[in-house]
Amino acid sequence: MILAGDIGGTKTNLALYDWPTERVEPVRLETFLSADYKSLEEILEEFLTPPTPPMLLDEIDAAASSEGESNEAPAPPEPVTLTAACFGIAGPVIENRSKTTNLPWVVDGAAIAKRFDIPRVQLLNDLEATAYGILLLRPDELEVLNPGSPPPQRQALALIAAGTGLGEAILFWDGKSYRPMPSEGGHADFAPNNDYEIELLRYLRSQFLHVSYERILSGPGLNAIYEYVRDTKKNEPTWLAEKIKAGDPAAEIAEAGLKGQADIAKQSLDLFASIYGAEAGNLALKALSLDGVYVAGGMAPKLIKKLQDGTFMKAFVNKGRYKRLLTNVPVKVVMNQKTALLGAASVAAALSHAPAL
């Protein structure tokens, strides 16, 4: 049995797999709210030692009758024997150790291996894990924004994902297979493309010492865009202000924008999608990812209608002399929300089948 995890700033997904050689469904999958725990080890402790299920009254009576009125408690479940584990972490991984970006955690692969008696534990950047996952996706788990026209010979792929933060990764072709390479490109400087975006940068600089793409292309970033539009256009309806205050700001803004319920929300989504497309195009140029760009993360499936209306792709190809080149780059949206978990599982499976050290 192998263990896979996708460790995000908002939630942590853990799953057990009996993975032979090809993709399989998890034997068990659970989701935890990351902020409710002090460490990944605390979540693993809960996940790997599930409580003994309570017995129903008729089961207790039957057991008592067959065992001479015995009052012994049912035996606890057998502990899971793990051969390998892999975790995608939202943060840089250095020497199999990571200080998470949006959580006050330090995750150490060696410490986890020792505590839970797992022979091999590998940590990956979360986008690196997602990159492994996209190589296993089925066509029905993708939405095509641009079919493109990739060259006959294999080239690089790129991956960008907005969620709690913004992640980026590159997959290079080594002659036999794609090799994911992690990146922290989401923390690079935001580069505005027009006067309206320049004013957005000025607005955010009044709040942050460093304005990265993640400050804009994320759940909190959509809320920051909304506040910028609100404070410049003064067009916030009272009902929406109350919903945002009471609920999840990004979710409320997205819902109102997608349903066309408020101009301020539609304008915020327009700006978000345009900047998202521009940065995806930047990544495509930097990686020369002629085989395609994948748009993943928690926000893309929820905003798929907005990503499909042309705003994203218009900004993606708007690179002057390189417009023709980027028009030929396939762009696909990852609809499977467990892609990072799938990628981590594939790495754990490879570790479990590798020769002993």
Rank of each mutant, 00 (worst) to 15 (best):
E252G: 03
G247R: 01
A250K: 14
I225R: 10
K259H: 12
S268C: 12
L258I: 10
A265G: 04
N235D: 13
A250V: 04
S268Y: 08
A254K: 07
A254I: 11
P249E: 10
I253L: 08
V229C: 07
G260W: 07
L269H: 08
D263F: 07
Y226I: 08
G260C: 09
E236Y: 02
D248K: 11
G260N: 12
K233E: 15
A250C: 12
K243N: 14
T232P: 04
Y226K: 02
Y226F: 15
D263C: 04
V229S: 01
A251M: 03
K234Y: 09
G247A: 09
K233H: 13
T238C: 00
P237H: 11
G260F: 12
D270C: 05
K233F: 09
E227A: 10
E255R: 14
K259Q: 15
I264H: 04
I264W: 01
G260Q: 07
D248T: 06
Y226N: 13
D263E: 15
A262T: 04
V229D: 02
A256H: 02
E252N: 06
A254G: 14
G247W: 00
T232F: 03
D270Q: 15
A250Q: 13
P237D: 09
Y226D: 01
L269R: 07
S268K: 11
G260T: 03
A246W: 05
T238G: 06
I264Q: 08
L240H: 09
I244H: 11
L240R: 07
E242S: 12
A265M: 06
Q267D: 15
K259A: 15
A262G: 06
K234G: 02
R230V: 13
Y226E: 05
W239S: 13
L240M: 14
A241T: 01
Y228H: 15
A265L: 10
D270I: 03
N235A: 12
N235Q: 13
A256C: 08
L271R: 13
L269W: 08
I253D: 04
E255H: 07
Y228T: 09
V229G: 01
A256F: 02
D270T: 08
I244W: 10
A265R: 10
V229Y: 04
A250W: 00
D231W: 01
R230Y: 07
I225E: 10
S268E: 13
R230D: 02
A265T: 05
K233N: 11
A262F: 04
L271W: 10
K243P: 06
A256N: 06
Q261K: 13
